[in-house]
């Protein structure tokens, strides 16, 4: 099982992919180590300064709406974000995160403040605790196939080791 411990970085609702990384930056800068310095640069009022490795993003509704470009996920992976909790997520972003092996959990209730220490156990029934407040966060179940892909480290690793599933229904 994947586990994460990190600092909560609270984000507003509707953080679109252009706010994660601007369209013009991603065109100008190909080097991911340089590009990651500009994560959330156009997002008004990101509290607490830049993203540090291990941070857990705690987003509102519709996280990752906008473009389907996977670079919005790549740049968060390069920033070594631990995992993402979102009240809801744009589907393309959710897929891209899954395919990149970045765990994204839909959280339904509970209280998180900027900088709180969180622990996350990623599984079909994820367990998320706010250690700073000694409380649990309610989360949605994660579909089985998605946990397999994330645990494999993303779809490329999954396909290289297990092959793409043949036509049909997935468990």
């Amino acid at each position: 099982m994947l586990t994460f411990t990190g600092r909560a970085r609270v984000l507003p609702d509707a953080v679109n992919t252009d706010y994660i990384i601007s369209s013009s930056r991603k065109r100008q800068i190909r080097d991911m180590d340089r590009l990651k310095q500009y994560v959330f640069e156009d997002l008004p009022g990101l509290p607490g300064g830049s993203i540090e490795p291990g941070d857990i993003l705690v987003a509102g509704y519709d996280f990752g709406c906008g473009s389907a470009m996977e670079i919005a996920v790549d740049v968060l992976v390069a920033s070594e974000v631990g995992c993402i909790l979102a009240r809801s997520s744009a589907r393309t972003f959710y897929r891209n995160a899954t395919n990149a092996g970045l765990a994204l959990i839909i959280w339904e209730g509970g209280c998180v403040a900027e900088g709180d220490k969180l622990t996350v156990k990623y599984a079909q029934e994820p367990v998320v605790r706010n250690e700073s407040k000694n409380a649990a966060l309610q989360c949605s179940k994660v579909p089985g196939f998605i946990t397999l892909v994330v645990q494999a480290g993303g779809l490329i690793h999954y396909v290289n080791s297990c092959g793409m599933p043949p036509r049909g229904c997935l468990q």
């Binding site: 473009s67 393309t92 897929r95 891209n96 395919n99």
Partner: peptide, 29 residues
Amino acid sequence: ADSHTVTYGAYGALAAGVGSTDAAVAVTT
């Protein structure tokens, strides 16, 4: 591999935008 792929619904297709990994795996598999 572009979010506005949905445009092809006007041709009666189920057309969806995806990211690069989905596109790469769909190309090869």
